[in-house]
Every structure is written in structure tokens, then in C-alpha cells.
Amino acid sequence: MQLIATVIKNKVLASMEHLLDKNRALLLEANKKDLALFTKDDQAMYDRLIVTDKKIDGMIEAVKSVRSQEDPVNREISRKEMENGLKVINKTAPFGTIMIIYESRPDVTVEAAVLAFKANNKILLKGGKEALHSNTVLVDFWHQALEENGLNTDSIQLLTMNRTETQQFLKEPTEPLDLIVPRGGERLIAFVKEHAKCAVLVSGRGNNFLYVDENADWEKSLKVILNAKTDKISACNALDKILVNTNVSDYKEKLIGLRNILKDNGVSIMVDTKAKEVLEDEALIPEASVWSAEFLALRCCIGSVDTLSDAVQKINDHSGGHSATIMTTDAQTAERFMEQVDCAAVYQNASTRFTDGGQMGVGAELAISTDKLHHRGPLGLNELVTNKYYIYGDGQVRD
């Protein structure tokens, strides 16, 4: 793969910023067509589909942020000179061709493409049919930006295949694929894993937990819970499950207070058998699988645990491996929780809503990876490269 000079990449990104700003009306009109065709059956998906001037500002800012970052390609990782005279240099290198499959969010069409392009990768954008008009306009902008700077438009492509065609493409791609990122729920991830013939990096599933320790600041806990649950229900970093230690002082009163503040904010509640002893009027969690479900709705589960170990076990058994929070003033307890919980992001006394590239200092993100290889957490610019060894010799042979 030919490497594009950093100065040319940045000129393309500057062109894209200008095109987004200049053609706001065109993008908003395309988005209106998408919204008019959407049935609103899935409120979370509808929320993700909407494009506003504020969201366009966010797209422009994402491109600017990536433009300002150092080029991640061809950086030297290590250099060694061996006893036999070989010079061994390890450098960062592009993945090659990345395919991302996502639903509803036109801003992903900007963020995924800007990251892939700056990291010298080709990207195939398989957006959902519900965002077709918006995505078509955005990819047209990308193609204009590339052409303005003398580059081929093949590096950023929009795929408009249906499910059957996508399945066939995954099984027998018309060009080599190096990485596929399914950014969505369990069904999408399972579908891609079943049919793909290359590496799949899992992203998108949340089902995040918050544990209230016996030494928690209760007022802070309520504030964090409310933010994590209600700030943006369509986000993969939203809160779904709350575990409360039964040794919290005034446990019953606090559990009732938690229930009340959630319901006052429109959140429906299910409880486990122990919590139901206090919250008698609330629905009992019908089966264990609910603990593993991501809601993407104003809905949550409240459970009671007796120990930190019980909380950690519950989270590790059921969470999506995305984010988990402990509310506690005890630093040692927090450290144990954060070391033992198997999630990409673990928090003490803060909302899970911060699991986001921009909020964590990474910048724009391709996705939030819940895999352990090759990276976990926000996939920013520096995570969209692999490595390559350059070995320089002078006729050496191995004995």
C-alpha cells in the first residue's frame, strides 16, 4: 500500500471541514428524507439518526481533531542492531482495508472515514439503510475532498448492500479485507462473526454496571446513576444495571430513594429477589438472561449484593465488557474492584458516559472495542495501525 504524505492527508481533511460547513443545508435536507422514512419504532435508533447543526459542528470538530494529531503511520517503535550486523527496525503500518458495519449514525460516516484515511487505510462504510440519504451526501463530500487534492476516491467507499448481499460479501469479499468492525448489538456481531473470513473486532455492546459500595457517598451516587442512565439512552456507554451493597447505612430508605428518583425521571425498574423485599411493588427480573441484556431504553435493573466479591462476580458474569463503575470513598476497595472487573473501562465515582474517545483524550473514535486484541477501549487514530519489521542486511545468512 502506497503511503500518502501527511501534508496531503491534512489538506484532504481541511477540504472536508470546509465542505461540511459550506453544505450544511444539503446534509440536513438529506437527513430529513431519512427521518421521514423512519417509523420511530426504535427510539434509540431514531435519536442516533438525527443530524442537527450541532451534530455537524461535532463532525467538523472531529475532522479538525484528527488533522491536528500526529500521523500514526511509519513511526519507529524500536530499533536494534544485532550481533550479526542486521538492523531490525519495527515501525507502525496501516492495516489495509477496514470494513465497518453500523446502524443509524451518520456521524460515524465522518469519524470512521477520517480516522481510517489519516492512518492510511482504505475503509468500506456499510451504514444502515435508514441513513442512506445522509451517508450518501457525506461520502460525496469525502470524494470531493479527495479529488480536490488529486487523490483517488477508492479509499473511502459506501456500501449499500442488503443483508443477503452483505452475508455473501463477508463470505466471499470482492477485495481483500483486513479487519471488520461490527458496531452494533449482539445480533449484528454474531452475524458478522459467523460469516466473516478475516479478523473481527467487536464493538458497540454496552450493558454497563454500577456498584454502590457500603462506603459510598450516597448523594454523589444518585447524581452519577441519574447521569449514566438518562443522559443518552441510545449510547453504548449508558448504564443498565445497578448493584447496591446491603450494608449501606439506611439501606432500605436509600433503596426506596433510588427507586423514586429513577421513576421520577421516567426510568422503569426491575429488581432481584433481595431488592424486591424492599421495593415490593416493582417487577421481578423474570430470568437470568435479563442481567446480560443491553436495554438502550429508559429501563434498568436494581440488584442487592452483600460483598464486593459478589458485585464483581455478577458484573463479570453478565456485563458486555464495556464499562463499570464503583461508587466508594474507600480507595483500597475501589482498587480491588477496578483490578478484578473485566471491562475495557473501569471507574471510581464517575459516570460510565465518559467512555468515549473525546472524553478520554483519544479524540475521534472508530468504535469502543470490547475485545482484548489488538486494543481495548476507544479505537482512536493511534489504534488504527498495526506494525511491520524492516530488516536491513548485507548478505547475512542464518547458520
Rank of each mutant, 00 (worst) to 15 (best):
Leu27Lys: 12
Asp342Ser: 08
Pro182Ala: 03
Leu13Cys: 07
Cys343Asn: 13
Gly358Glu: 05
Lys274Val: 13
Ala190His: 10
Asn74Ile: 00
Val63Glu: 04
Thr97Gln: 00
Met270Gly: 02
Lys229Asn: 04
Ser65Asn: 15
Arg398Thr: 07
Lys87Glu: 14
Gly358Lys: 02
Phe191Ser: 09
Leu262Ser: 04
Val108Gln: 03
His374Tyr: 05
Glu148Cys: 02
Leu308Glu: 15
Gly96Ser: 02
Ile225Phe: 07
Ile60His: 10
Asp107Leu: 07
Lys314Phe: 09
Ser289Asn: 04
Leu188Trp: 08
Val305Met: 12
Thr39Arg: 10
Asp240Ala: 04
Asn149Cys: 05
Asn215Phe: 12
Leu384Ala: 02
Leu188Glu: 05
Asn10Pro: 10
Glu17Thr: 13
Met360Asp: 04
Thr52His: 13
Asp342Phe: 02
Lys263Thr: 09
Tyr251Ile: 04
Arg75His: 06
Leu132Thr: 13
Ala36Phe: 01
Thr109Ile: 06
Asn121His: 03
Lys22Phe: 01
Val312Glu: 07
Arg67His: 08
Thr6Leu: 05
Asp47Trp: 03
Glu383Pro: 00
Ala334Asn: 13
Gly303Ile: 00
Lys126Arg: 14
Phe141Asp: 05
Asp140Pro: 06
Ala112Val: 02
Ser319His: 12
Asn74Met: 02
Leu115His: 00
Asp217Arg: 10
Gly358Thr: 01
Asn215Gly: 13
Arg398Asp: 08
Arg105Ile: 10
Thr273Asn: 09
Ile101Thr: 12
Thr109Trp: 08
Val244Met: 15
Val192Asn: 06
Ser221Gly: 13
Ala36Thr: 04
Gln396His: 15
Asn227Glu: 11
Glu383Ala: 10
Asn208Ala: 11
Thr329Glu: 14
Ser15Trp: 02
Ala228Tyr: 06
Glu17Ala: 13
Lys32Phe: 06
Val63Gln: 06
Val212Thr: 08
Glu165Pro: 07
Thr166Asp: 02
Leu179His: 01
Glu219Asn: 14
Ile123Gly: 07
Val271Arg: 02
Gly127Ile: 09
Leu138Gln: 02
Ile50Asn: 09
Ala62Ile: 01
Lys252Met: 05
Val139Met: 06
Ala30Arg: 11
Glu214Asn: 14
Ile233Glu: 02
Ile256Glu: 15
Ser309Asn: 14
Arg205Ser: 10
Ala324Ser: 15
Asp154Thr: 12
Cys300Gln: 06
Phe117His: 04
Pro94Met: 00
Thr386Ile: 00
Ala25Lys: 14
Val66Ser: 10
Gln396Arg: 14
Cys300Arg: 12
Ala25Leu: 09
Ala238Pro: 09
Asn207Asp: 11
